[in-house]
């Protein structure tokens, strides 16, 4: 559970994620997660859906999402790429948008676009179990299960791998046969859960 103290300022949060509050709060529905009209249009086109509300006031808000763990990410000007379902709330100073991510969506069925968060401030990510943050360097590329990936920052290239030996991990029933390979410099947030794993449906 995440407690956010507000003193007249505001946060943007996933709809329905607030479980309780003390003090005086007002709520405003945001039409989309993106930048005004353009963000909205992008949303419509991409199918990335994130119903967002803005909470403003004095007091304490408590956010939670299906008993998931909450991970705080501090951004200092860099860009965070996050799966839309994993973004719980952000400082209202952070800009959110969408970005084309290539192939990952096609394997996950999540659409081809991912949510971006940019600026200076804090974002809260939810994950099934506390997320593990893994650093990628040019010397140490990282392979991640698409079902466990939740977010990344930095200059990373994503590749899809369906390596030959990897087929050994695919269940007979089929299912996911991909892993994402990250190369470059950056951080990858992975949740300790494999609903959609390389091994296929659990």
């Amino acid at each position: 559970m995440l407690a956010v103290d507000l003193t007249g300022d505001s946060v943007k949060a996933k709809n329905g994620a607030m479980v309780a509050y003390e003090g005086e709060m007002t709520f405003k529905k945001k039409t989309g997660g993106g930048e005004g009209l353009r963000g909205m249009v992008t949303r419509r086109l991409t199918g990335e859906q994130m119903a967002v509300m803005e909470v403003k006031g004095h007091g304490t808000c408590y956010f939670a999402d299906r008993a998931s763990e909450i991970n705080l990410v501090s951004l200092n000007g860099e860009k965070l790429y996050v799966e839309v379902g994993n973004l719980l709330c952000t400082d209202s100073a952070l800009r959110t948008g969408t970005s084309f991510t290539g192939l990952r969506g096609s394997s996950q069925g999540n659409g081809l676009f991912t949510t971006t968060v940019e600026g200076t401030g804090q974002a809260a990510l939810v994950s099934l179990g506390t997320a593990v943050v893994l650093r990628v360097t040019p010397q140490t590329p990282l392979q991640v299960d698409p079902g466990a990936y939740i977010a990344h920052t930095g200059g990373l290239e994503q590749h899809f791998q369906a390596g030959v030996n990897f087929r050994a991990l695919i269940g007979e029933s089929g299912g996911e046969s991909f892993q994402i390979r990250f190369e470059g410099d950056g951080l990858v947030y992975v949740q300790p859960s494999e609903r959609n794993t390389i091994g296929g449906e659990v």
């Binding site: 079902g147 466990a148 030996n165 990897f166 949740q191 794993t197 390389i198 296929g200 659990v202």
Partner: peptide, 17 residues
């Protein structure tokens, strides 16, 4: 390893059924 229980890895690893 039981299938589907690995979420990420570094290095050179082969997987055989």
């Amino acid at each position: 390893l039981q299938r589907g229980k690995m979420v990420a890895y570094y290095g050179q690893i082969d997987f055989q059924g």
